[in-house]
Amino acid sequence: MKSKSDVEALEKLIGQLQGLHSEISLLAKKAPSDAVNAFKLRLINNVIAAANDVLGPNYLPFGDFEAFNADDVPSTSDVALVLAQYMEEAERYRSDNVKYWKGRWVYVVNGDSSDIPSGAPTKVGKK
């Protein structure tokens, strides 16, 4: 990561992905084949577009996926599956950019330890 704003974008993305995944997973448990409505799909695609920007090509879960096609109307289970993969890659990206420094976990910004606190990594090693 190159700046504090990159860290903030990642933290925001992780929160949005977790929130969307939680909501869509509830819907998918009730009716996995039901279509996602246009409003929700627009919000989901906005978060996926942000994820594609934040994660960059090295951390994208699918090389050929950019967004859901509104004309194909994906099911709740399809969306839950894709969001889960984005969550995994966002966490791998975060884990690859934190280190233990002076008794706490911090983000690495421009190759150096920063003063931005982080949780411990949950993924080990780069892909």
Rank of each mutant, 00 (worst) to 15 (best):
K4H: 15
S5T: 09
D6C: 09
E11R: 10
E11K: 07
E11Y: 07
K12H: 06
K12T: 03
Q16V: 01
L17I: 04
Q18Y: 02
G19I: 03
H21C: 01
H21A: 00
S22W: 03
S22L: 02
I24E: 01
S25G: 08
A28W: 02
A28P: 06
K30C: 02
A31H: 12
A31V: 05
A35R: 10
A38C: 08
F39G: 06
K40W: 08
L41R: 11
R42S: 12
I44S: 00
I44A: 02
N45C: 06
I48E: 01
I48Q: 03
A49C: 04
A49P: 01
N52K: 07
L55S: 02
L55K: 02
L60M: 01
P61F: 01
G63F: 06
E66N: 06
N69K: 08
N69Q: 04
D71E: 13
D72R: 08
D72W: 07
P74F: 01
P74Q: 03
T76L: 08
S77K: 12
S77R: 08
V79E: 03
V79K: 00
V79W: 00
A80Y: 07
A80D: 05
L81W: 04
L81V: 03
V82S: 01
V82T: 06
L83T: 03
M87H: 01
E89L: 07
E91Y: 00
Y93H: 04
Y93S: 02
D96W: 06
Y100T: 09
Y100D: 13
V106C: 08
V109G: 11
N110D: 15
G111I: 08
G111D: 10
S113D: 14
S114Q: 14
S114D: 14
D115L: 11
I116A: 13
I116V: 15
G119I: 03
G119N: 13
A120E: 15
A120L: 13
T122L: 08
V124W: 15
V124L: 15
G125H: 15
G125W: 14
G125V: 15
K126C: 03
K126Y: 10
K127E: 10
